[in-house]
Design a protein around this nucleic acid. Structure first.
Lengths: 239, 239, 239, 239
DNA sequence: AATGAATGAGCCTTCATTCAT
DNA sequence: GATGAATGAAGGCTCATTCAT
């Protein structure tokens, strides 16, 4: 707003914002919204106590910003259809979906924060969740729905199809939400790369197996030969 | 409302403890550990501000107590093998397990509290979680493991078997942990009795279908005739 | 609320409240509502920072309490009809009214606080003013109206009568509201006992003179012989 | 909106000063010195946050400037002897004085600001008040003193004369200082033009009546024939 | 044994002001 | 000359906890 008189005043502002966002992500992930304090966030960002209010208005807006940014980062870093050829079979697309969601949720590299904050948000939803659902989760839900549409016979009960989607997502998010329990049940287990591959493969197989049977029941033969169905472009690009 | 010193001081003390536990359960479930205040809990329990510290030492100990009690209640109210004949088939036992866990987690009557507090605990584990895992979750995990042992061929990879257990539990807990998102994605959906039956049936079918296929692959025919295996008592009674 | 367990727990609370009220009166009078800080009030009262919130809820409620108490004290210390015989003549009653109001407003002994806070309240009314008008000012206004009713002929325009009341009160409150200016205009002037007597006498004479003429005009002869009117009990006791 | 360095930088600077003064007058009148914030003033003036400090040094200096300017404006807009012929009778001059002061204090058009800020200054005098008294109030006091000198017999006690002046001013300023109470006592009353005329007339009559009697007592006949005294120029021109 | 008045640390926020540009 | 990002002190308030009774 207005011509920047100093050559890098914008840059300075941006840098401070960035530092605040990073520090806030760490604090919110580690201590939750209530547990994190503006003071600590500012200190960690090397900024003044008033910096949060100056740049974001208040603590809650900062939180909302952090949440949205982390989701965007996670989605960008691990796209739902990473490396898939345009004509990928539905099974491949499901495998990619599962793998990318699992990565977003477990990957230590960035999403430890994302997963933790999301899990907190589930438990203690703030206003930020509304935006998040609208912008990031709903599209993912639509994508999975489309994949299942290709995997299940057209004759299947839509509600059953929806429950299948939830079963798949549930298997994945479980590792995000229940990690503390899992670690206590099997302390030696980790969630590194190898483990993640194993998990992704298992969930994919488990789900495909279930879909096969359920689809076969609802309309015999449907899932029996999924590979023979004509290759379809993704429904999202159609809409 | 004052505590008259005399013959029933023990009774009074017990009553106060009870009232505090109830009030605390409601507050912790509704507002989380941080959000709930000792003052509100005491007021709601009709007790003194200092009652929590007096009876439980501090806020965190009260929380731990509440958590343990709620788990015990939930387990008692919805036993994992409710109404099952001693010789129930593994499929039936799995269905009962799924149904009871889902009930504990979703039932409005008491476990709204349980589910919510557990979900919080996942996100922000306190010392209370260790005890909880040991006393309540581990036994449940063992039980499910035993059921799967009966459902899957003996030749199956133990790790695969374990992952199947997690897939099943994940599908269930998903409804506890992600309710805020589910409500926003499909606002008209509820979790009343009818819905719960539908969910339980779906998760059971989805999981059995998957187990069938995975078990069949690992050792063909294994799941095809589960009933012919000798009836086994539950593993807990064996240990 | 509840039987006091400690013999002087109420006394302790009362003492703290008292100290807070005194300190608050001093601070509010000296610095205004905004200028006064809860911290300073508590320090001056020898109490904790949280004492205000504990005893009064918040700063504003404390202020309201202080205001009401000061008004009550002032009214009690300098009753509007102090030392008047029941059959006092209207002129005497007006003199007493003027004198008592002037005392409340100027008396150094207690009402320096009262006058200053009231003046502030005029300038920056808070919610406390509503209560104050209702409980303390309105009755005084009624009293003066009744006195004027006895001093002015019945035929006088009620609006004129009302304006006369305002003229009288205005002369008095002027010394409360404009003291800073008066001190700067005539630095050697004080408001001690002697001066106060002089002022009261002047305002009484000035006002009676004006009423005499105005009443005489409105209805010739009315004020000309006020003493000859039958002695009346005060109208307030009649209503 | 930025200030282009160039030929009219002086003009721009002056415009900014002007905007700041206007905005500050509005804010100070509406919220008081403490309540008004530098940020809001600058925003309302369309200027930078630092503009106040840049142009006026600090908040208090800006306040002082605003106060002086408003007084000057009020005095200019409603001169104490507006429209009076040079040989106006003392009674006319008193009526004009009362009317102009009342206007300054009540007129919504500009002096709502002036009256309110002055009232605040009475309550919480700042250094600005000294200058104000010297430059604007003292001359007015001298003027009123001169008018009374013409209205009262020469033999009158000077202190009585002074108190009469205060009684007159008190009646007027009352409407400025106690407006919040007046509005609460009689909510339907307004201070529009009509009302102002009525008030001015009443105060003039009330005061003249009182002066008549008091003057008559002190020196019979003095007020009876004020017109016969030689016309005098205003005291200010003499001093 | 049980109370409730009192505590003090700490939270979020606001504000006038400064300073590099 | 004028900006606006950044500052740091301070404010009101909340909370779990303590302690004399």
């Amino acid at each position: 707003m207005g011509a920047p008189p100093g050559i890098d005043s914008n840059a300075t502002q941006a840098a401070t914002r960035r530092a605040l966002l990073d520090a806030a992500a760490a604090e919110f992930a580690g201590r939750g919204f209530h547990g994190a304090t503006v003071r600590d966030i500012c200190r960690q960002a090397g900024a003044n106590v008033a910096a949060v209010n100056y740049h974001f208005g208040d603590k809650e807006s900062l939180y909302s910003e952090v949440l949205a940014e982390l989701s965007a980062q996670a989605q960008k870093r691990f796209p739902a259809e990473a490396g898939l050829p345009p004509d990928a079979a539905p099974r491949q697309r499901l495998a990619a979906f599962i793998r990318s969601l699992l990565q977003r949720v477990l990957s230590e590299e960035l999403s430890a924060r994302h997963g933790r904050i999301m899990a907190r948000e589930m438990v203690e939803p703030t206003d930020a969740l509304n935006r998040l659902v609208r912008e990031f989760i709903q599209p993912q839900a639509d994508l999975l729905r489309d994949i299942l549409r290709d995997l299940l016979p057209a004759s299947i009960d839509p509600e059953t199809s929806r429950l299948c989607a939830l079963s798949i997502v549930g298997q994945i998010l479980f590792y995000a939400h229940c990690r503390p329990v899992l670690q206590r049940l099997k302390p030696e287990g980790s969630f590194d790369r190898l483990e993640l591959d194993r998990l992704a493969r298992h969930i994919t197989e488990f789900s495909l197996a279930a879909l096969e049977v359920l689809g076969g029941r609802g309309s015999p033969g449907a899932v029996a030969a999924p590979r023979k169905r004509p290759v379809r472009t993704r429904s999202r690009s159609r809409s």
